[in-house]
């Protein structure tokens, strides 16, 4: 059997039972070179101190879509976000631009520091929640629904304005206890398969689950990403939910404290990696 198959079965306990199902597939793909080794020149950009972006785990074809702003479907949401930025909404008769002015100046780098601790709330807040809080409190507008086109567009647009900048979340001071909770979540076994995030993305990153190469789970700078599977842009919390379902666990709600804490941990794991929004993933 292949090296990959052997490693997987040494995972112990229930993971081994799961892995057995993958063995046949793993055997077939073991001979292929991993896409991660195929692109030497882009490593510098997408690998920082040994931390690899999901970009390096994508197929060359998928990467080509991300590299071409025209072909990248996520750019449709960026354009929409730019329109929404100037659109007046709510009782106060304001748009985002009324307070924040030119987004290209005021929103540069904003993406890289979220989620962050907000004293008024006494907990972490991520970018989506920040946008909605601003809408409710300052614009007198209704909060956008999670995963709605408008919220995705605005988040994607703000992320896009920080493209290329290194991820840089704060985990000290008041954010520390939430960071610890997020870390706990990452290593906590859940669901029928009794697996934690770390079993795939920490222990077995770079190996195959059937035909899919497991990334290191550093989605911090990539989301909202255009997933080919979704055929649209989706948030990091949607991805979390998908992962949770795959290990047959009950997913938390998008925007729940658990996911926001986990988001901080995942974004800390992505520290230094460039913002890729809107990234393209399989």
């Amino acid at each position: 059997m292949s090296r990959k198959g052997k490693n997987m079965t040494t995972g112990g306990g229930k993971l081994a039972a799961v892995a057995a199902g993958f063995l046949l597939a793993a055997g077939f793909v073991a001979g292929l070179s991993t896409p991660a080794s195929a692109c030497e020149e882009c490593k510098g950009k997408y690998e920082v101190e040994g931390r690899k972006s999901g970009y390096l785990f994508s197929n060359p074809e998928t990467r080509a879509i991300q590299d071409d702003d025209f072909a990248n479907g996520g750019m449709l949401w960026v354009e929409k976000g730019a329109e929404l930025w100037n659109k007046v909404d709510g009782k106060a008769g304001k748009s985002c631009a009324s307070c924040h002015g030119d987004a290209e100046e005021s929103m540069k780098g904003v993406y890289t520091v979220y989620p962050k601790y907000v004293q008024e709330l006494g907990k972490l807040e991520n970018l989506e929640q920040r946008i909605n809080r601003c809408r409710e409190a300052n614009m007198g507008a209704k909060a956008w629904k999670w995963e709605s086109d408008d919220l995705l567009a605005m988040t994607t647009y703000i992320g896009y304005l920080s493209r290329g900048m290194p991820m840089n979340v704060k985990i000290d001071g008041p954010a520390a206890p939430f960071f610890e909770k997020g870390k706990e979540e990452y290593f906590k076994r859940r669901g029928q398969l009794d697996m934690a995030c770390k079993h795939c993305h920490y222990d077995h990153a770079g190996q195959y689950i059937r035909a899919d190469l497991i990334s290191e789970g550093r989605g911090g700078g990539a989301f909202p990403a255009y997933r080919l599977k979704w055929q649209k842009i989706g948030s990091l919390h949607r991805r979390f939910k998908g992962c949770n379902k795959q290990i047959r666990a009950q997913p938390y709600k998008a925007g729940s404290d658990e996911y926001v804490n986990l988001e901080l941990f995942v974004k800390w794991r992505s520290r230094g990696l460039p913002v890729e929004v809107p990234a393209v993933r399989r």
Binding site: A71, G73, L76, L228, Q231, K232
Partner: peptide, 8 residues
């Protein structure tokens, strides 16, 4: 054909 079709 996928959503948001791209054609070159």
């Amino acid at each position: 054909v996928s959503a948001n079709p791209y054609c070159a």
